[in-house]
């Protein structure tokens, strides 16, 4: 079990979460051309090592998170909310 420390709920097993995918992808604007969308939707860095990825605490607070995790060992380096506005709120409150 990988333990993910949800910023809202605390440490939980990864089976409470849904794996999203590569969190480093910047999705183009809705009007942007096919090549931009193609690269974002279909191409992957597929990093062997530490990558940023998205997970959703689907059986918990349902928040989407950005997780830095080593794909060679499964070790998690950091977890933060995917929504940067929420990060700001969390920081203000702490």
């Amino acid at each position: 079990m990988i333990i993910i420390k949800c910023p809202f709920c605390g440490s939980r097993g990864h089976n409470e979460f849904k794996y999203g995918g590569d969190g480093s992808i910047k999705y183009p604007d809705l009007h942007d051309p096919i090549t931009d969308w193609h690269d974002a939707v279909f191409q992957r860095k597929n990093i062997a090592g530490i990558q940023t990825e998205t997970w959703q605490h689907i059986h918990g607070c349902r928040m989407w998170l950005l997780v830095d995790r080593d794909t060679l060992t499964h070790k998690i380096i950091s977890v933060r909310p995917a929504n940067p506005n929420i990060i700001n709120i969390l920081e203000k409150n702490s």
Binding site: G20, G23, Y27, T54, Q56, W64, A82, N83, N85, I86
Partner: peptide, 11 residues
């Protein structure tokens, strides 16, 4: 929809 609202269009 939650992914879109939180990850892609947080504003």
């Amino acid at each position: 929809l939650e992914e879109l609202s939180q990850v892609r269009w947080p504003d």
